[in-house]
Design a protein around this nucleic acid. Sequence first.
DNA 1: CGAACCATTGACCACCTTCAATGCGAGTGG
DNA 2: CCACTCGCATTGAAGGTGGTCAATGGTTCG
Lengths: 237, 237
Amino acid sequence: MLSQALSSSPILLPLAHTKRCEAPAPRTLEEHFSRAPVRSFAAKEHVFTEGDPRSNLYRVEAGAVCLYKVMGDGRRQVLGFAYPGDLIGLGACNDHQCNAQVTKPTQLRSVAWNTVQRLARQEPALALKLYEAMCEELAAAHDLLLTTGQRSAAERVAIFLLAMVRRSRRTGQDATVIDLPMTRADIGDFLGLTIETVSRTFTKLRHLQIIDLAQSARVHVLDIGALEGLAQGEVDL
Amino acid sequence: MLSQALSSSPILLPLAHTKRCEAPAPRTLEEHFSRAPVRSFAAKEHVFTEGDPRSNLYRVEAGAVCLYKVMGDGRRQVLGFAYPGDLIGLGACNDHQCNAQVTKPTQLRSVAWNTVQRLARQEPALALKLYEAMCEELAAAHDLLLTTGQRSAAERVAIFLLAMVRRSRRTGQDATVIDLPMTRADIGDFLGLTIETVSRTFTKLRHLQIIDLAQSARVHVLDIGALEGLAQGEVDL
DNA sequence: CGAACCATTGACCACCTTCAATGCGAGTGG
DNA sequence: CCACTCGCATTGAAGGTGGTCAATGGTTCG
């Protein structure tokens, strides 16, 4: 494959589609989600933190969530971002292994974790779906590993922007304009770079007419070919 | 938690233990493995490569396997190492997502992938086990991400050595002497460093009497406390 | 013994980080 | 409405860590 790189980890489970059911008892995970109330979170609020008991599985309805780990001395590694349709809070052990912080006003729905477990035991198909979801997350983690371990700052930023463009395309947006829902610090901690390096790289891309930055959070992609060239290490800045 | 760091990815599935069954048809995955013939691989042989159809699930019986990905220009990221008891070749999609290369003479057993799938569909418990195995692999990938993304060369090497010490302890060896089954290049590509940096870091540790290197592949850990201090970034080299 | 491979060591330098100052925008209160 | 503040982003200068290139050394295997 090599590589949907940074396919933006968490997972959109292709479960049975909503059936607009009016009343019968919820049977599929999808049905549970559909009838769960929407919970709103303000920017910077945490959905859960590392070590919390895994009480719920969440689905992002709107907004964006940043998943990260921290080291004792404060250094932080962002593991990925979750967008509408993505599930967060998946995992096998009893406690959450990372922090989930909302990066802008966000709506979530949740299903109790023991409900998920019960469904998974009843429905082998759901267990397999969860397994597949983890596999995708693992693939995303491996891609990120390749990126942070081996690539230059310019490559990392280009790959990140291209991943955002692809996301934008999939959700049917104008793919040339991206609204970044996270800060430079989030991007830096995701890519294993400092805020300053991220900012400087953006500036270089702007000077090269590869992107434009009307506002710091709004990226216009002017030359996606150049971005792809950078992402593959074919050129330097 | 924070962090079994570099818990050396692949997974030792705590499946039903071998029951020394003499004849009846194999029912559990464990039974399938037990009666599979042992296949031997020479150092540097590949078990599978990226893009190969996922034909088998493998269990390491003896030796060591290096799992890695490569980029177009040859840069390589080692995702982890598999040791006796670990499974390799797990994943949801039809093709392998990484390369698996034996680093020293190694024995494996394998079970056909469609057998694994059939068992997983019959036994919800096995599907959940596979799910848990993936979760552990994901946790390992996240730990490695934290390491390659945020830590200094000395921290990375210290963490790597400590992970080897823990492994050694678990398998009941003398934990102060570690025989590294991989080259400096493997270690470097694992930690996101060059061969030279790995080598220089080993040398520094030797000069500080933290380790001793009788041979380049044999590490005597002289001061594990110092190693732990380094791993947590409490001291610099 | 020679060859091949791997590890070590050294010198140099590039890239990224660090530290510091300035700029910009949004939200708040006077 | 404006001034103020706070958080975030940008920009600059200096320095260090780790990378690159190159030569040497050591081990294993023929």
